[in-house]
Nucleic acid binder design. Structure first.
Lengths: 342, 342
DNA sequence: GTTAGCACTCGACTAAGAGGAGTGCTAATA
DNA sequence: TATTAGCACTCCTCTTAGTCGAGTGCTAAC
């Protein structure tokens, strides 16, 4: 158990290091407001805190730097909730000024503003398309052997995919087919779509249409992929500002990671509510060793979720980012639920 | 006019500098195959070439480096067409192995392979959607006051956009409307779409449907934007490999530039056939001072074009990139015209 | 016209030394 | 007993000086 004084010193060190990016020394700490004890005392306490694993030295005679464990403790116990600036709030509100109808635009703008306000990199996941429900199914033939299948979902999202038509497929076949698909599939969520296709629709189609097998097969493969939620980035190069990323290799690894959808997805917690913080190696990715990721989710309508992540150095301004994400999450949720009930 | 010997020396210097990234000295040149004269002679020639503006020194006693004018001369007069490796050809062919139907997938894969083969950054512009023609127009209502307009083009591209419905809009209005739109707009190119909407369709709609004005207005704004051709990137971080980009700021500027659609568009020559090379400051952008951009176009079907750009340092392997782009351009063109006539 | 020779330049690297911020330990103090 | 002043020590950072080597320009010889 840490003493009050130790808590106070740890807090000062983390707070100071977050803004200065320099190891913090005992003399420096002693000059801070609220510190009533001498550098020597502080040195003793720091030695203890280091032994306990909360602090580290960069070399024998350097000041102290928070360890991952130190950040973790700071985040868990020393993070007083902070109000945010009215100017910041105004800027966030500006996202919703434009009466944008489309979810995509709002999210894109949010990503940019978040990265501006934090000066870190933001990643926003759009609604989980998998959970949208089919509103309308249509097929538009392009030539004798290709067609586009189009699915419109209840939220106005449109999926489309080209596929090959079986050779002896007539226009009336197509019409029958579309009718059957619309009869059976409306209301089915995209994630259940190919299950439903195979389970319910296949049999019916086989009765009515020649070469339904081929067709369904083409359709199933077409609907199976390509339904990840879209990813929006803000301030991709913001990390160049941080002194810890003056190393080209680190930056490169992180930028490469952000190009890989699966890696980006794994930054997010699977749909848990609230704000989550992962510090340094708590991220499974090697590339993120020196990064912290703060994530949260927002709601779109009743049953859908999007997610937000902020990526910065472990020396991140946790207090501010948490506060901003909290506002952002609520505002987005509000905007999207209002939007739908209108 | 340059003497033969000067040409030969210039060529050797550029060729050498392209692979070594180090200033080239007279002794080094004298050891090259085909060089029969002494370092002293070479020094004299180099002094002349420098005076003529083809070479530069990094400091008083350094070897020589090609100037922009030097590269330009090299590209215009010394660039012997080069065949490419069968392994490279194989890799390019692999793009078309998968029987991919969708243009987008082929282009995405092409971007990746080009960046791999060149170790520079590639940018591919998809077909100019503006020139697609309307194949089918449909409107799917989502709620009492919102709907999605969907346009399928002759090439299987799907544009969609949400918009607000006027308050007193009935289902039969909608049906009439869709019929009229399909009657009048099929075959119209997307770039002419809002013109046609206003010129031909508006009057007809006003006769048949209440509040057509509002509706058309919503539709026009919906179709006007969002029809830029898609941009695909390959090897965004490849430039980190180049020694000239060990400067964080340069890299950052270029990466930022690549996030800005308008800036990226302006890298391309407006639809001129052939392969174009812009060296250093020949690019209008300040950010591209140290870069060269090689662009070309490929055809999709009969009347549509996509474009390819490779971005690298001015010290780019022009010979190789030009050869690769030439193959790529032809292969893509072939794949896309075959695809359509099938 | 070409080339060997030579003095000179300048970047890259290494070594040495000064300065400064910070530590740990010891002993004195409240 | 907890705190603090004092002090020797460590190690980073910055500067200076010196060496090395690749390269140049110029001059004179071939």
């Amino acid at each position: 158990m840490l003493t009050n004084r130790q808590l106070q010193i740890l807090q000062v060190i983390v707070d100071d290091f977050i803004v200065s990016a320099q190891p913090v020394g005992s003399r420096q700490i002693s000059k801070k407001q609220g510190i009533t004890f001498s550098p020597a005392t502080i040195r003793n306490e720091m030695a203890d805190l280091e032994e306990l694993g909360f602090l580290e030295k960069t070399h024998t005679s350097s000041g102290r730097v928070p360890s991952e464990k130190g950040y973790r403790f700071y985040v868990d116990h020393l993070l007083s909730p902070q109000g945010i600036n009215s100017k910041d709030i105004q800027q966030i509100q500006s996202i919703f000024n434009d009466r944008l109808v489309e979810v995509e635009h709002i999210i894109r703008k949010s990503a940019n503003i978040l990265s501006e306000l934090t000066s870190y990199t933001s990643i926003l996941l759009g609604p989980d398309v998998q959970r949208h429900r089919v509103k309308r199914f249509s097929i538009v033939p392009l030539s004798s052997d290709t067609a586009v299948a189009i699915i419109v979902t209840n939220n106005g999202h449109v999926e489309n995919r080209m596929f090959n038509l079986p050779p002896d497929f007539t226009a009336s076949d197509l019409e029958k087919m579309v009718n059957i698909l619309n009869d059976r599939l409306i209301g089915v969520s995209l994630e259940d779509l190919h299950k439903s296709l195979e389970a319910e629709v296949l049999a019916v189609l086989q009765q009515h249409i020649r070469s339904a097998d081929d067709f369904i097969h083409a359709l199933v493969t077409a609907t199976m992929h390509n339904s990840e939620s879209k990813i929006f980035y803000g301030g991709k190069t913001n990390m160049f500002n941080q002194p810890e990323f003056h190393d080209l290799n680190k930056v490169r690894m992180i930028l490469d990671l952000m190009e890989t959808t699966s890696q980006v997805q794994s930054l997010f917690h699977p749909n848990e509510a609230g704000i989550h913080i992962r510090i340094g190696s708590e991220n499974k990715q090697l590339e993120m060793e020196n990064c912290s990721v703060i994530t949260t989710t927002y709601s779109i309508g009743d049953d859908q979720q999007g997610a937000i992540a902020i990526i910065g150095p472990t020396r991140m301004d946790y207090k501010r980012v948490v506060a901003l994400l909290d506002v952002m999450r609520l505002d987005l949720t509000q905007a999207f639920t209002k939007n739908r009930s209108e």
